[in-house]
């Protein structure tokens, strides 16, 4: 049992735990997170179980949301605004963007109020707070896969009806894309959740902040619409590279440029690191301000 291990440890090192006013910013206690891995899974299970309890359509909502959004995009941007989709059927093009973007946006929105919405639990018992946003990011992958299933079905429909679609080898990078989106959205989410403890306004800002971010990302338009001289600057948006990669993988449009992927990863990791440090700092004292 665990307790026996701990007793042995106690005699080896002096103290198991030191509670101090402020910790070193690099003391992140990530080991604690591993010890609470069961809790992460239980949170994932809880969120999936309760999300659609007492709804009539249940998990079908996973599919309804992107379909309706995609229909609206197809109508507005495809039929009225006639924005280019680089030869891909508009519905499929927007669905691809929506499915990928929805994963990121959901993760950011849900992790960004970690402290405020869990204040009652956090105020009563200690466990690594990071378990909550991590479980959100993992749980949302399930939703993403359901939506990806929808995308595959629609894709096959268009493919069999003779649309010019090329799957490239880059599709093998899909797990990497999911991982990067997970890290990025976790980083953004925990960064904002740390600030929200003091400035509640940010929750409101978040809702349309994510919307605006979407328009700065090639979700409803191809990267080819961006003038070449701005592309480098544009790619500082880490989500841009992810969307490009996905579209290149499933449609064969655009291109993969290693320097952009590198920039995207560097920014992702930077945001994640800042988020982690902020979160760690706030986690010790947020109960006094929330």
């Amino acid at each position: 049992m665990k307790s026996e291990n701990l007793t042995v440890n106690a005699s080896v090192k002096e103290w198991d735990l030191v509670i101090k006013p402020k910790s070193n910013i690099f003391e992140l206690h990530l080991g604690d997170l591993w010890r609470y891995r069961d809790l992460i899974w239980l949170f994932v299970k809880r969120d999936l179980t309760i999300n659609y309890k007492q709804t009539i359509l249940g998990p079908i909502w996973f599919v309804v949301q992107p379909v309706i959004m995609t229909l609206i995009f197809t109508l507005v941007f495809g039929l009225f605004a006639r924005i280019s989709t680089d030869g891909v059927p508009p519905f499929l093009f927007y669905l691809a963007g929506n499915v990928v973007w929805a994963y990121f946006a959901t993760c950011v929105n849900e992790t960004s109020n970690t402290f405020v919405s869990n204040a009652s639990i956090f105020g009563k018992v200690y466990f690594p707070r990071l378990t909550v946003p991590i479980s959100v990011v993992i749980g949302t992958v399930v939703k993403f896969f359901v939506q990806l299933g929808l995308f595959i079905a629609v894709y096959l429909y268009f493919y069999l009806n003779g649309s010019d679609l090329k799957i490239t080898i880059a599709l093998l990078g899909l797990p990497l894309l999911i991982l990067q989106m997970g890290i990025l959205s976790l980083g953004v989410g925990i960064l904002i959740s740390s600030l929200v403890t003091k400035y509640r306004d940010l929750t409101l800002l978040m809702a349309f902040g994510v919307q605006i971010w979407m328009y700065a990302t090639p979700v409803i338009y191809p990267l080819s619409m961006i003038p070449e001289k701005y592309v480098f600057l544009y790619m500082f948006n880490p989500m841009a590279s992810i969307l490009e990669w996905f579209k290149y993988a499933v449609f064969g449009i655009g291109s993969l440029r290693p320097e952009f992927i590198l920039i995207s990863w560097m920014i992702t990791l930077l945001i994640f690191a800042i988020g982690l440090v902020m979160f760690n700092k706030i986690e010790k004292s947020f109960m006094d301000t929330v």
């Binding site: 106690a10 735990l17 030191v18 509670i19 006013p21 956090f122 009563k124 018992v125 200690y126 004292s285």
Partner: peptide
Amino acid sequence: ILSRVTAPSKGNIKIKGR
């Protein structure tokens, strides 16, 4: 403070065991 729900402003606490 002992439960680590909030941090102290000054001083420290050392604990042995879970």
